[in-house]
């Protein structure tokens, strides 16, 4: 039921994704602030399919040369491609403090035992500025294979970017910067090089009092 209704291909399903800041309060407690978050969902067959976005509308927001989004999509499988619009929650006080931890956690599940590689490319004006590649092994839990990328440290580029964004006085200025800031995450089967999931992330700043928000779309080519 989750295919077409959540970030899932026939081989891999994203269960959770978050980017966060942990600020210690005292030796035993810390505050966790979520910049962006996709929580666990259990869509039913009665739920509608995700809305579709024509992938050609966003090609230029991501790397376009060899191995770019167009080439990846042509390689397929087409059901592995998604667009996430995040409304990031920046309503947090940031200080330069080495005890602060900026991290990303994500979880995936599959019916197959495999080794996955996650490539995360941060792009400015569609050009890659930094890439993180992580390899994860499966753990068999409750009849399926689970992959956890737990508390992966956010890179210096991203921490500086968030700080600079926070220093802008108005939300429209932040959104103007974010218009040219994107992230492309590609999860592949390390051994077969098959694309398992490809998620294109675009951003605005949240105006909500309820924290980070998001919409998920299927990427299609009509």
């Amino acid at each position: 039921s989750w295919q077409g209704r959540s970030i899932a291909s026939s081989k891999l399903r994203m269960l959770e994704f978050s980017a966060f800041l942990e600020q210690p309060q005292d030796p035993e407690n810390f505050n966790k602030h979520l910049f962006v978050h996709i929580g666990q969902s259990n869509p039913a067959y009665s739920d509608p399919y995700l809305e579709a976005v024509d992938i050609r509308q966003i090609y230029d927001k991501f790397p376009e040369k060899k191995g770019g989004l167009k080439e990846l999509f042509e390689k397929g499988p087409v059901n592995a491609f998604f667009l996430v619009k995040f409304w990031a929650d920046l309503s947090v006080n940031l200080q330069d403090d080495s005890s602060f931890f900026y991290g990303v956690s994500s979880q995936y599940e599959s019916s197959e035992n495999m080794i996955i590689t996650s490539s995360t490319k941060v792009c400015s004006f569609g050009k890659q500025v930094v890439e993180k590649v992580e390899t994860e092994y499966a753990r068999f839990e409750n009849g399926r294979y689970v992959f956890r990328i737990h508390r992966s440290p956010l890179c210096e580029y991203m921490i500086n970017f968030i700080h600079k964004l926070k220093h802008l006085p108005e939300k429209y200025m932040m959104n103007s910067v974010l218009e040219n800031f994107t992230i492309l995450q590609v999860v592949t089967n390390r051994d077969t090089l098959e694309t398992l999931l490809c998620v294109a992330y675009v951003f605005e700043v949240s105006t909500s009092e309820h924290g980070a928000q998001h919409h998920i779309y299927r990427l299609v080519k009509d």
Partner: peptide
């Protein structure tokens, strides 16, 4: 076929793309 430097607002995107949900 890429839209080039067209602002996101001028692209063919669903209306929901510009509507922040009240809660996720």
């Amino acid at each position: 076929s890429a839209p080039g430097h067209i602002p996101m607002r001028k692209r063919q995107l669903p209306a929901s793309f510009w509507e922040e949900p009240r809660s996720s």
